[in-house]
Design a protein around this nucleic acid. Structure first.
Length: 424
RNA sequence: GUGGGUGUAGCUCAGGAGGCUAGAGCACCAGAUUGUGGCUCUGGGGGUCGUGGGUUCAAGUCCCAUCAUCCACCCCA
C-alpha cells in the first residue's frame, strides 16, 4: 500500500456510514422541530479567530491546533471547534440585523492535534447548535432539553447530565479571590500543574483529576458559592426549567469547561460505557464571546456533541441500526441469449423507481441466485431463452420462494403495484 | 507531550522456552450430473508473520528502532 490514513483519522465505510447517516438525520429532525436553521462555515479560519475567541491560554489553542501558513502568508487554522466560526459568520453576515434570537445548528469535522485513544481522534465530527440574542435562562434549558431529546431518540441510556454555573465578569474576581484564599495555605499539596494554575487560573484546579488536588479541593469554595445575585438567579431559573421538563441533572460544582468563553451555565453529558473519554456532549452560555469577536454585546448559548462518541456509546449499548442497502429486485439471467433483454429490464425497473441490480461477474445461474440472496433483494427476476421467446420473465419472491411468470412489458408496473400496497 | 500493553490471511485467533513448503474457524470464489438462493458436503484463492535494522548456521518466535492501535495521564466532543 502506498500510504495509510493519517493518525487519528477514520474512514467511514459501508456498514458504518449508515449509522452516521441515521444519527445525523435524527439530529436534523430535532433541529427542525425546535426551530433551528442550518449554517455551514469553512473548515479553516484565520488563526486569530480561535486565539481570541476560544482563548489564548486554553489547551486547545496552546497545543492542539492544526495551524499553517498559506501561500499568501496568512496564518490559517483548521477549526478545533465551531462556536467561534459560527459567531464570526453571524457577525460577518449581519444576522444580528434580523429577528432575534437567531437559532443555528451545524454538523461537520473538527480538528485537534491530540494523542488518539478510544473516543478521541484528530479529525472528529460534531453536531451542535447555537442561540444568539437572548439571555433567557429558559433557552439554556431548551438547549439542554433538545440534547436529551436527541439522545433519547437514539435510544441512549445511562447518561448523566452535569450542570454548573461558572459565573460572569462580576463574580469571577470574587471566585478567584476566594479560591486563592482557600488554596494558599496548602499550595504544597497540589500538583505542579495546579501550582501554575493557582496563578493563571485557579478555577482550573477544581477540574484537576489528580487525586491529591481533588482531595485538597473537596471543601474549596465552588463557583456556585461566589455567584453574584444575577448569576445565582439565572442558575436557579435554569434548574427550575429543567425541573419543569422532568430532566434529571446532577449539580457538578467541579465542572469547569476548558474554553475561556463560557459564562453562567456550563453543562456536560457523560456516558459511562465508553471509557475515559466519556463526555458525549457539552456546552454552555457565552455572553461575552460575540463582543470579543468584535460584535455588539450579544448573549449566546450553545453546545457541541461528538458523533464518534455517540456512535461508540450506541455500539456499547447494543443499539443496532439497519445498515444494509437492499435492492427491491435482482435481475438474473439463465444462459447468454437473454442478456440484452435483462440489461434493458434492469434499467426499465430503475426508471420506474424500483431499485434494482444485476450480476457483473458472468456468474452461473446458481451463483447469481446465491449472490442475489446475499444482497438481500426482496425479489429476483429470472430471464432465460424460454422466457425471452415467450416475452416473459419469472418473478421469484425470495422470502417465500414463490414464482410467477409475468410479461416483460408489465413487469415494472407489477413491482410498482407491490410497492404501493405494502411499502412502509 | 508522558507512562504501559498489543501488532500472524478480509475478521477472530493458534503457532510450549528459535529449526523442514506458517495453521484453524468465519468470510470470499467454485463445484455437488447439465435453468434457481438461504442448510450441508467438497475443493480453491489469499499472509514478504506492521515496517526497518541487528543477533544467529537458522527468527513469526530473541534485541533495538519506527509506525499503528489500545489503556491511563492530560484534554475534551
Amino acid at each position: 500500500m502506498l500510504t495509510t490514513r493519517p493518525r487519528g483519522t477514520n474512514d467511514v465505510i459501508p456498514g458504518e456510514v449508515e449509522k452516521w447517516r441515521w444519527v445525523e438525520n435524527q439530529f436534523f429532525k430535532i433541529c427542525a422541530h425546535y426551530g433551528y436553521n442550518e449554517i455551514r462555515t469553512p473548515v479553516f479560519e484565520h488563526t486569530e479567530l480561535f486565539q481570541r475567541g476560544v482563548g489564548d491560554t486554553t489547551d486547545i489553542v496552546e497545543k492542539e491546533m492544526y495551524t499553517f501558513t498559506d501561500r499568501g502568508g496568512r496564518s490559517i487554522t483548521l477549526r478545533p471547534e465551531n462556536t467561534a466560526p459560527v459567531v464570526r459568520a453571524y457577525l460577518e453576515n449581519k444576522l444580528y440585523a434580523g429577528p432575534q434570537p437567531v437559532k443555528l445548528f451545524y454538523s461537520g469535522p473538527m480538528f485537534r492535534y491530540d494523542r488518539p485513544q478510544a473516543g478521541r481522534f484528530r479529525q472528529f465530527h460534531q453536531v451542535g447548535a447555537e442561540v444568539f440574542g437572548t439571555s433567557d435562562p429558559a433557552v439554556d434549558s431548551e438547549v439542554i432539553a433538545m440534547i436529551m431529546d436527541f439522545y433519547g431518540r437514539l435510544g441512549l441510556k445511562n447518561l448523566e447530565l452535569h450542570i454548573n454555573s461558572v459565573g460572569c465578569p462580576v463574580c469571577r474576581p470574587v471566585q478567584r479571590r476566594e479560591l486563592k484564599k482557600y488554596f494558599q495555605p496548602n499550595l504544597g499539596d497540589l500538583c505542579k500543574n495546579c501550582r501554575e494554575r493557582f496563578e493563571k487560573n485557579p478555577l482550573r484546579i477544581l477540574d484537576c483529576k489528580e487525586r491529591r488536588c481533588a482531595e485538597a479541593g473537596v471543601n474549596a469554595p465552588s463557583t456556585l458559592d461566589c455567584l453574584c445575585p444575577d448569576c445565582a438567579d439565572h442558575f436557579a431559573q435554569v434548574k427550575r426549567h429543567l425541573d419543569l421538563l422532568n430532566i434529571a441533572y446532577v449539580i457538578d460544582r467541579r465542572l469547569v469547561r476548558g474554553l475561556d468563553y463560557y459564562t453562567h451555565t456550563a453543562f456536560e453529558i457523560v456516558a459511562r460505557d465508553i471509557g475515559a473519554q466519556s463526555s458525549i456532549g457539552g456546552g454552555g452560555r457565552y455572553n461575552g464571546l460575540i463582543e470579543t469577536c468584535g460584535g455588539p454585546p450579544t448573549p449566546g448559548v450553545g453546545y457541541a456533541l461528538g458523533m464518534e462518541r455517540i456512535i461508540l456509546t450506541m455500539e456499547r449499548q447494543g443499539i443496532a441500526i439497519d445498515t444494509s442497502a437492499k435492492s427491491d429486485v435482482f435481475v438474473v439471467t439463465a444462459g447468454t441469449e437473454a442478456a440484452d433483454m435483462a440489461y434493458k429490464l434492469l434499467f426499465d425497473l430503475r426508471s420506474a423507481g424500483i431499485s434494482a441490480d444485476k450480476d457483473y461477474l458472468g456468474r452461473s445461474l446458481k451463483a447469481q441466485m446465491k449472490y442475489a440472496g446475499k444482497s438481500g433483494a426482496h425479489f429476483v427476476v429470472i430471464i432465460g431463452a424460454e422466457e425471452l421467446a415467450r416475452g416473459t420473465a419469472l418473478v421469484r419472491d425470495m422470502s417465500t420462494g414463490e414464482q410467477e411468470e409475468i410479461s416483460t412489458d408489465s413487469i415494472a408496473a407489477y413491482f410498482e403495484r407491490i410497492k404501493n400496497t405494502c411499502s412502509p
